[in-house]
Computed example of a mutant assay.
Amino acid sequence: MTSVDRSDDVLAGQPVLRLTDATLAYGSRTLWSHLDLKVASGEFIAVIGANGSGKTSLLKVILGQQQLTHGSVEFLGGPVSRGNRRIGYIPQQKLADDGTPLRARDLVGLGLTGHRFGIPWPSARRRRQVDELLSDVGASGFGDVSISNLSGGEQQRLRVGQALAGDPALLLCDEPLLSLDLNYQRAVSELIDRQRRERDLGVLFVTHDINPVLGMVDRVLYLAGGRFRIGTPDEVLQSPVLSELYGSPVDVFRSQGRVVVVGTPEAHDPHDAHAHPDAGPSLA
């Protein structure tokens, strides 16, 4: 992979992403308020919290799909906008329908040309770019295979490649491990972590379960009840902090390198498109 010089993007001390006094509300319900968040180049931040706490809504704000109620959000020193190719996005894992007439390399190639109108003309340069992306995400061996014949973990590798195609400075991951088995959770997590280190990417990783990425995370943003806490995993994921955040007793247990949070009140917000009504609040 070719190294990326980001000296023009991120000046010394300037974050990739900055939210200042940010508040997001739907009617009388405030998802979070007075949020100050800076994401540095190369930093991995996990975003966690109960259903409806505003995790996916935060990503929508950064993608320019949702306006803040109050405050500001900046990306690379300027305002956010829809379709900014320097922001990569990895969605939840969703299996392709049987018979989908799309090869693995075609899916990754959409990251290069999917924002343009019409069918892209084949070219040696575009094929080389796709081959490099397939190699970067460990998918060279099935580049010409129909995506409907690939496993969920293999398809998610391709979505990582697609998200990297725009040479992003920031990678937004919206529950990318959902429905994957433990082996693929580990593989996809390690893939994202390796790419952020090699490309010096800022990463916001929304997840219900922090354990697959616990050893990779620099900081945790925990959203709950219109409030938030941010810090290292050891600073945030402890009983006194979460009990204060929720306003009720919350227990945090650690066992064999895993974290289990018990006792968090469950919420559901219809505006949070990826809230999972059947998911419990535990991070185990």
Rank of each mutant, 00 (worst) to 15 (best):
T2Q: 01
D8F: 13
D8K: 13
D8R: 14
L24D: 07
S28V: 08
R29E: 14
T30S: 09
L31K: 02
L31G: 00
H34R: 12
S41E: 06
E43L: 06
I45N: 03
I48V: 15
G49S: 07
N51V: 12
G54N: 08
T56R: 09
K60S: 04
Q67M: 10
Q67S: 13
S72E: 13
V73R: 04
E74D: 10
G78R: 15
V80M: 00
V80A: 05
S81P: 02
R85I: 09
R86L: 09
Y89F: 15
I90C: 08
Q92Y: 12
Q93T: 15
K94V: 15
T100N: 03
R105K: 12
R105F: 02
L107K: 03
L107C: 09
L110H: 09
L110C: 10
L110K: 05
L112C: 13
L112P: 02
G114R: 11
G114W: 09
F117K: 14
W121Y: 09
P122F: 11
R127W: 05
R127A: 15
V130T: 09
V130A: 04
D131G: 08
L133H: 02
L134K: 04
V137N: 07
S151T: 15
G153K: 09
E154K: 10
E154R: 11
Q155P: 00
G161T: 14
Q162M: 15
D167P: 00
P168D: 09
A169R: 03
L170D: 14
L171K: 02
L177R: 14
L182W: 05
Y184D: 14
A187S: 14
S189E: 05
I192E: 11
I192R: 01
D193F: 01
R194P: 06
R196P: 05
D200P: 04
D200Q: 13
L204S: 04
F205D: 02
V206R: 13
V206W: 01
N211D: 11
P212Q: 11
V213D: 13
V213F: 09
L214Y: 03
G215M: 03
R219T: 12
Y222F: 15
L223Q: 01
L223A: 12
G226R: 01
F228S: 13
E235C: 00
V236D: 00
V236F: 03
L237A: 01
Q238S: 04
S239R: 01
S243H: 02
R258L: 06
V261F: 06
G263R: 05
P270H: 13
D272W: 08
P277F: 02
D278F: 11
G280P: 08
S282L: 04
L283E: 05
A284V: 04
